[in-house]
């Protein structure tokens, strides 16, 4: 992956909808090769933060750079895996068609017949996700977890520098989630990964660092020990109302309540 450099930089970043501030004073840098889990309560601005990074929303204030450039200006290729896609139950596309969407770009319009290399790349991406035997299946006939893998294949086929996933395991069962995060861990060898999740305990065993978003952002490097991890979670929950608090307290009141307070 080359030398470590800042992949996403935010300085005093803020975003608000009319009459409602969603994110404020966010200072956060994601370095290349990192595997960041973004956690936080519902409505805390996780998805908004992700949409800012991929360029679907424009910041209201502050600085945001992806690989040194404004999002959407060609700084880095971002592979985006959305939370879920609200399409018809019968959308007419095979899994392969969906992955091929990742190979299309506006300057390829005149090429009426697609080159074989696009197809090869798409099939390879599906293979990487263990989905090659479903290539010709209708996308809507696949299960939630299988569809999620196809969407990741679609993101991978764009040859991204940064993979951004918004709640990717919402439709996968617990066993499937472990497999899924192991897969992300493998992908992390060549890719910077940013994943939004509300499932703290699953995320904690795979992510290298954690950002807690609840209007503000707290960043924690996971050094390795469980105590450090819980510390991060706990600290995050002291200042904001984070779901972490309930999880941690629910797990073991006595151990965690006397942890040192986060600045």
């Amino acid at each position: 992956m080359g030398e470590i450099h800042p992949m996403v930089e935010m300085a005093d970043l803020s975003f608000s909808y009319p009459g409602q501030e969603v994110l404020s004073a966010i200072n956060f840098t994601v370095y290349s090769g990192d595997f960041v889990a973004i956690i936080g309560p519902n409505g805390g601005g996780k998805t908004t933060l992700v949409k800012l990074i991929v360029g679907l929303l424009k910041p209201s204030g502050g600085m945001l750079r992806v690989n040194g450039k404004t999002p959407g200006r060609g700084g880095a290729v971002i592979g985006y895996v959305p939370q879920q896609i609200k399409h018809n139950d019968n959308f007419p596309a095979s899994a392969l068609d969906v992955v091929l969407m990742g190979r299309h770009s506006p300057d390829k319009r005149w090429a009426f017949f697609r080159g074989g290399d696009d197809r090869t790349a798409a099939l390879q991406a599906l293979e990487k996700m263990g989905m090659e035997k479903y290539a010709e299946r209708k996308i809507t006939d696949l299960s939630g977890g299988q569809r999620q893998r196809v969407l990741i294949a679609r993101a991978l086929v764009t040859e991204p520098d940064l993979l951004v996933l918004d709640e990717p395991t919402a439709s996968i069962d617990t066993k499937g989630q472990a497999v899924f995060f192991n897969l992300l861990k493998t992908l992390n060898k060549d890719l910077t990964i940013l994943v939004v999740s509300h499932d703290l305990l699953v995320v904690s065993s795979y992510a290298k660092s954690i950002a807690c978003v609840n209007k503000r952002l707290h960043y924690h490097d996971i050094v390795g020990s469980t105590t450090d991890l819980m510390n991060a979670f706990y600290a995050c929950s002291v200042e904001e109302v984070c779901p972490v608090e309930t999880v941690v307290r629910g797990l073991n009141k006595n151990t965690f309540l006397d942890l040192p307070r986060h600045d």
Binding site: G72, F91, G102, K108
Partner: peptide, 24 residues
Amino acid sequence: VSYFFRDLLAMSYDEEFAQIRGMP
């Protein structure tokens, strides 16, 4: 429709992804 076919397909399936990929 044939000229913009793949754009229309990508947009119909997932508008946000299409936008991120630079489709108008």
